[in-house]
Lab assay of single mutants.
Amino acid sequence: MEVVDPQQLGMFTEGELMSVGMDTFIHRIDSTEVIYQPRRKRAKLIGKYLMGDLLGEGSYGKVKEVLDSETLCRRAVKILKKKKLRRIPNGEANVKKEIQLLRRLRHKNVIQLVDVLYNEEKQKMYMVMEYCVCGMQEMLDSVPEKRFPVCQAHGYFCQLIDGLEYLHSQGIVHKDIKPGNLLLTTGGTLKISDLGVAEALHPFAADDTCRTSQGSPAFQPPEIANGLDTFSGFKVDIWSAGVTLYNITTGLYPFEGDNIYKLFENIGKGSYAIPGDCGPPLSDLLKGMLEYEPAKRFSIRQIRQHSWFRKKHPPAEAPVPIPPSPDTKDRWRSMTVVPYLEDLHGADEDEDLFDIEDDIIYTQDFTVPGQVPEEEASHNGQRRGLPKAVCMNGTEAAQLSTKSRAEGRAPNPARKACSASSKIRRLSACKQQ
């Protein structure tokens, strides 16, 4: 084909351009004929944790799935940006308080904090938690009735009371019990989460009196709706648990309003109706937990002794299953770290194939690490110290990083047969305790 000078094309009309061969290198194709290559998922490591896909996002930050490269346990990490926390009232204080509380709590029905990582340079905090497959609110939203069968609701409620009793025994008032803060594992274990607005009572406090509340409006008791200066913290949790039980068994809320002012007005009056299909035992329990006067409201001991709580409820309806993943529609909620794991395991070791967030990740503290002497050669063979940054567990980050890069360049065919977990650990520049 004859090559045409581009400067001469402006002298031709459209018809003349076609005659000189423009149609031979300008093609129009339908979008259905285009085959897009999927974007390669680059592996990203935060300390010893391999990052997966997004699980959810809230006002405080994002939650992603991660894999512990040492234990191969599935975890969830809450990623918090200090810049964003400053824009939220009491944001930083709530996060630090939640970390302090979770560090000393150990119960099967309370979410466990596994690790805390802090990135000084990017001003990011990573709260590594045990993995929960789904939230209770997500399960309720997945069915038209917006409720659980009585047998399933009873099982979840009993676990909620177990976890709540443990928190109260530790002198902690949750203040925000609701389905949105109750998570579930694949085995059906309920976990109380989000202790950001919780309050730890003084060890020598005479009672459970509280003065502040930041919980969700629909789950607040009349004493808070009416603006009382002080109130019983434990009875606030009992009320919120009662509203939660009402919601998961009926699909409704005892109090509603077009806006928060109308909602608080209705809560302050204390008038509500219980659907007739709840039955006398459940209705009596709800009335005891939603008692207007805090002094007359049920205690956890009274809830445990109630006939509806103690009764064994046979399954009359099919239980609400864990819904498919909202993004991938995966009904099994498979591990989202698998594509990243395959990338590390299947590809040659190259620095361009993975990302390490930083050479140094500070753990379990908000301060910069200490310094240790770096050896410097002298005339008599002895070495003197220069400062060298280290990880919180004493690992020399720069030395590990250099060693990792040197190993990656060394030709050794046997290394390709290593397991995925050992490869992740070798790529991680800074081991965590």
Score class of each variant (00 low, 15 high):
V4G: 06
Q7S: 06
T13R: 07
T13L: 05
E14S: 10
G15F: 06
M18A: 15
V20L: 04
T24A: 10
H27I: 03
I29C: 11
S31R: 13
S31Y: 10
Y36R: 10
Y36M: 05
Q37C: 01
P38K: 14
R39N: 03
R40W: 09
R40G: 08
K41R: 14
L45M: 09
K48P: 11
Y49V: 05
Y49H: 07
D53H: 09
L55C: 12
G56M: 06
G58M: 01
G58R: 00
S59G: 15
S59R: 13
Y60V: 03
G61V: 03
K62V: 15
K62G: 09
V63N: 07
K64R: 11
K64N: 05
E65G: 01
V66W: 03
S69R: 07
T71Q: 14
T71S: 03
L72A: 04
C73L: 08
R74K: 07
V77L: 06
L80V: 02
K83P: 15
L85E: 15
L85V: 08
P89D: 01
G91A: 06
E92T: 15
N94H: 10
V95D: 13
K97P: 07
K97T: 10
K97A: 12
I99T: 12
L102R: 02
L102Q: 12
H107A: 05
K108T: 10
N109R: 03
V110L: 09
V110Y: 03
I111L: 02
I111G: 02
I111Q: 15
D115S: 14
N119K: 08
E121P: 15
Q123R: 01
Q123T: 09
Q123V: 05
Q123A: 07
K124Q: 15
M129C: 09
E130I: 02
C132I: 10
C132E: 06
V133D: 13
G135N: 15
M136G: 00
M136H: 00
Q137K: 04
E138S: 09
E138W: 08
M139S: 04
D141T: 00
S142A: 15
V143G: 10
V143Y: 13
P144G: 06
P144H: 02
E145G: 05
E145V: 03
P149D: 03
P149L: 03
F157G: 00
D162R: 13
Y166A: 12
L167H: 00
L167P: 01
H168C: 01
G171W: 13
V173S: 09
V173Y: 06
K175G: 04
D176S: 00
K178L: 03
G180S: 07
G180L: 06
N181C: 00
L182C: 08
L183G: 02
L183Y: 14
L184T: 12
T186H: 02
T186N: 01
K191I: 08
I192Y: 07
I192W: 01
D194L: 00
D194C: 00
A198P: 05
A198R: 01
E199W: 01
A200T: 06
H202F: 04
D207W: 01
T209C: 07
T209F: 03
C210I: 07
T212M: 05
Q214L: 06
S216F: 00
S216G: 05
A218V: 06
A218L: 05
Q220W: 12
P222E: 01
G227Y: 12
L228A: 15
L228R: 15
T230P: 07
T230W: 08
F231N: 15
S232L: 06
K235A: 15
V236I: 09
V236S: 11
W239G: 00
S240T: 06
G242E: 01
T244H: 00
Y246S: 01
I248G: 01
T249I: 03
T250P: 00
F255A: 10
F255D: 02
E256C: 02
E256S: 10
I260L: 09
K262D: 11
L263E: 06
L263F: 04
F264L: 07
F264T: 05
E265W: 14
E265L: 08
E265V: 11
G270Q: 08
S271M: 12
S271P: 01
Y272C: 07
P275L: 04
D277M: 01
C278D: 06
P280A: 05
P281E: 10
L282H: 03
K287F: 09
K287G: 09
G288P: 00
Y292E: 13
Y292L: 02
Y292M: 15
Y292T: 15
E293D: 11
F298V: 04
Q302E: 05
R304F: 01
Q305V: 14
K312Y: 08
H313N: 02
P314G: 06
E317P: 15
P319N: 12
V320M: 12
V320A: 13
V320R: 12
P321F: 05
I322M: 04
I322C: 08
P324D: 14
S325Q: 11
P326V: 04
P326R: 13
D327R: 15
K329S: 03
K329M: 13
D330Q: 01
M335Q: 06
T336L: 11
V337Y: 05
V338A: 14
P339A: 06
Y340A: 14
Y340D: 02
E342D: 04
L344F: 04
H345G: 12
G346S: 12
D348P: 14
D350S: 02
E351D: 05
E351G: 10
E351H: 02
D352R: 15
L353Y: 11
I356N: 12
I356A: 12
E357A: 07
D359T: 14
D359P: 13
I360W: 04
I361Y: 01
T363Q: 13
T363Y: 08
D365I: 12
F366V: 11
F366Y: 09
V368E: 11
V368P: 12
Q371V: 12
V372Y: 12
P373W: 14
H379P: 12
N380C: 14
G381T: 15
Q382W: 06
R383T: 14
R383E: 14
R384E: 13
G385I: 12
L386Q: 11
L386T: 14
P387C: 13
K388I: 06
A389V: 03
M392S: 13
T395R: 14
A397E: 12
A398S: 08
A398E: 14
T402L: 09
T402I: 09
K403D: 13
S404D: 08
R405H: 14
E407R: 13
R409N: 13
R409Y: 13
A410I: 13
P411F: 05
N412S: 12
N412M: 02
N412V: 10
R415S: 13
R425L: 11
S428C: 11
A429Q: 14
